[in-house]
Every structure is written in structure tokens, then in C-alpha cells.
């Protein structure tokens, strides 16, 4: 469901399928594990993801806070139209740095 790669010092987490109440904890544990291990620059890529629910949004908010408190940065990329709608409705598009593509997000770190 979540695959991790590292490129140019950026930890890229790819979300496959959905980020919802049933698997949100897995994403949280994965990212916090890497934060504990010293990673600081995170990119969560949603290009292969079709859906996120409020629990998933909540986990992203909480991760963003934790990463920032550790002196790191989190960026999001690859949101489809439905996902963008949900970020806009909840005004989370103002809280996150969101790029259209992974490449563009990497260039903005």
C-alpha cells in the first residue's frame, strides 16, 4: 500500500490505492519511523491513489506538524481531481505545499 524510495536526500512515500481509516495508521508509523531514523525531507506522492478520507487527511495534518517540529519539510504531489476537491473543501490546500507532479515537488525542496 505504501512504498518508500529515497532520492537526492528526499524520502518519497508513494500511496497506492486509498488512504483511509483502515490503513492510515500504517502510513503514520511508516513516516514517523523514517523521521525517527533521521529523515527530514518528505514527499508523499498520490499519483497512484484515488481516494482519501477525513482520517487520512487527519494523519497528513498530524505528520506535517511532527515533521515541521523536527525541523523538516513535507510536500504532497500528484493529487487527482477528487483529492484536490477534498483538500479545497477542508481548506487544507492552504496548509500543505502541493505540487502537480513528483518532479516539480522535488524541485521545490
Amino acid at each position: 500500500m505504501f512504498s518508500i524510495t529515497e532520492m537526492n536526500g528526499i524520502t518519497i512515500v508513494e500511496v497506492g490505492g486509498e488512504l483511509i481509516v483502515g490503513n492510515r495508521q500504517e502510513l503514520k508509523d511508516t513516516v514517523l519511523g523514517r523521521l525517527d531514523a533521521g529523515d527530514r525531507r518528505f514527499l508523499i506522492d498520490f499519483s497512484s491513489s484515488s481516494y482519501i478520507d477525513s482520517s487520512g487527511l487527519g494523519v497528513l495534518v498530524s505528520l506535517s506538524k511532527k515533521i515541521r517540529e523536527s525541523g523538516g519539510a513535507l510536500r504532497l504531489a500528484g493529487l487527482n481531481e477528487d483529492l484536490r476537491t477534498l483538500f479545497e473543501l477542508t481548506k487544507l490546500d492552504t496548509l500543505f505545499q502541493i505540487a502537480d507532479t513528483r518532479a516539480r515537488a522535488m524541485g521545490e525542496f
Partner: peptide, 12 residues
């Protein structure tokens, strides 16, 4: 409230 991790479900 934007940085709260809960409370978006009912709103959505």
C-alpha cells in the same frame, strides 16, 4: 482549527 487532526468527517 485547521491543524487539528480530527473533526473533518462530519464537515465533509
Amino acid at each position: 482549527n485547521r491543524e487539528r487532526s480530527q473533526g473533518r468527517g462530519l464537515f465533509l
